[in-house]
Amino acid sequence: DVEPGKFYKGVVTRIEKYGAFINLNEQVRGLLRPRDMISLRLENLNVGDEIIVQAIDVRPEKREIDFKYIP
Rank of each mutant, 00 (worst) to 15 (best):
V58F: 08
L45D: 00
P34D: 07
R59C: 04
Y69I: 04
R14Q: 12
V58Y: 10
S39A: 13
I52A: 04
V58G: 04
V58E: 03
I22W: 02
N25A: 10
G48R: 04
I70D: 14
P60L: 10
F7S: 13
V2W: 06
G48S: 04
F7Q: 06
K9T: 10
R33G: 03
E16I: 08
S39E: 15
R59K: 07
L32S: 01
G5Q: 06
F67A: 02
V12D: 00
A55E: 03
P34W: 10
E26N: 14
A20M: 03
A20I: 06
I56T: 10
G48L: 05
R29H: 11
S39W: 10
I65Y: 08
V53R: 00
E26S: 15
I51K: 00
T13Y: 08
V47N: 04
V2K: 02
G5H: 07
V58M: 06
V2T: 04
L45S: 00
P34Q: 13
D36R: 04
R14S: 11
I70P: 04
V53H: 00
I65W: 07
E64W: 14
G10K: 00
I15G: 00
E64I: 11
N23S: 14
D66L: 11
A55T: 07
Q54P: 01
E26R: 15
P60T: 10
V53G: 00
A55R: 04
L24A: 01
G19W: 05
L32R: 01
N44H: 15
D57L: 11
D36F: 07
D49Q: 13
A20T: 03
T13W: 05
L31G: 01
V28T: 13
I22V: 12
L40S: 09
I51H: 00
K17Q: 13
E16P: 02
I51Y: 02
E3Y: 13
E64A: 07
L32G: 01
R14K: 12
G5F: 09
K6V: 09
N44T: 11
I22Q: 01
V12Y: 02
P60V: 13
D1F: 15
P4Q: 12
A55N: 01
D66V: 08
I22G: 00
I38R: 11
P34R: 12
I22C: 01
V53E: 00
D1W: 15
E16H: 09
R41E: 12
N23C: 09
I52H: 06
E43I: 10
I52R: 09
K9R: 13
Y69M: 05
F67T: 02
I15F: 02
K68A: 15
R41T: 15
E61S: 13
I51A: 01
E50N: 13
Y8F: 05
K68I: 09
L40M: 11
R29S: 13
D36P: 01
N44Q: 15
P60C: 06
K9E: 06
V11T: 13
I65E: 01
Y69Q: 07
E50C: 13
E3K: 14
L32W: 04
Q27P: 03
E61P: 07
G30F: 04
V28W: 15
V47Q: 06
L32I: 05
N44M: 14
G10H: 00
Q54D: 01
V11C: 08
N46Q: 15
I65C: 04
D66H: 08
R35D: 09
P71M: 08
S39G: 15
S39F: 12
